[in-house]
């Protein structure tokens, strides 16, 4: 009897697995998600609050150095802002002259984060909201990832840090590839030895491959990892976004 129940449930599980893979169970998921998604959101928000409380406990150690660093960065940003404003005005004038639509005007769909780790983000928006695999997920003009799979109410976003993730990137005029490193970090690779890249350079999407939108910020080079004898230059890239500070992300439609 026990064996029969076991085999029956096993067959049922395999059946459900195959049916869900073929999206035949979407109506069931839609109903179930109505109950699950709010609860998952509550738990995720709770997690963020708890993490914030603990962050205060460790802040005193690194706080002073971070404040000094941020003050320097703030001054640099103010200088960059002035430069950017004049460039934006010049750009707008040129665009007007050439009749090109303003850059960065995407249709964005907001979605609450209900789960995340270093390789994936789960968001409370799915096929019912028009989300489909392959869409780009951003916060501001920073790339967060690409929709990997979607159910009627939720979607899984693959982050650039995920193993197997490969995003064509550029550093100014230099072309390269951002590859996920063991679900924990990003590696800039496929950059020719002769190309000038350095710590502090910003890495952006080139608009090719999985991310068809160019000029989205991916991160900043924090360490050059390759040696001069290597065929390609490699560098460690870190995203400026701390996911635990975010509650919402935006899907580019």
């Amino acid at each position: 009897m026990q064996k029969k129940i076991f085999i029956f449930l096993l067959v049922l599980s395999v059946g459900l697995f195959l049916l869900d893979r073929a999206h035949f169970l979407n109506p069931v998921r839609r109903i179930a998600d109505s109950a699950f998604v709010p609860l998952e959101y509550i738990f995720y928000s709770g997690r963020q609050k708890v993490t914030d409380e603990f962050r205060i406990l460790t802040f005193w150690q690194s706080g002073e150095a971070r404040i000094k660093y941020l003050e320097t960065k703030n001054r640099e940003l103010l200088e960059a802002k002035v430069k950017a404003e004049s460039l934006a005005a010049e750009n707008a004038a040129l665009r007007k002259q050439l009749g090109i639509l303003p850059a960065g005007k995407f249709i964005l769909l907001p979605a609450a984060i209900i789960g995340a780790d270093s390789a994936k983000i789960i968001i409370a928006a799915g096929t019912d909201s028009g989300v489909r695999p392959g869409q780009t997920v951003v916060i501001g003009e920073t790339l967060l990832g690409v929709v990997d799979s979607a159910t009627p109410k939720t979607s899984v976003v693959r982050r650039p840090t995920a193993s197997g993730s490969k995003i064509p990137a550029k550093i100014g005029e230099v072309r390269g590839l951002i590859a996920g490193e063991f679900n924990t970090g990003m590696l800039l690779t496929q950059v020719a030895q002769t190309e000038p890249i350095d710590v502090g350079d910003t890495v952006e999407t080139s608009g090719e491959g999985d991310v068809p939108i160019p000029n989205l910020l991916i991160g900043q080079i924090t360490k050059i990892k390759s040696r001069e004898s290597d065929v390609f230059r490699e560098a460690q890239v870190v995203s400026p976004v701390n996911l635990s500070d975010l509650s919402f992300v935006f899907i580019v439609k």
Binding site: F17, D20, I122
Partner: peptide, 11 residues
Amino acid sequence: LTVGTLGFSAL
């Protein structure tokens, strides 16, 4: 139901 394909964890 919270994450993944139905039936996978059950299996």
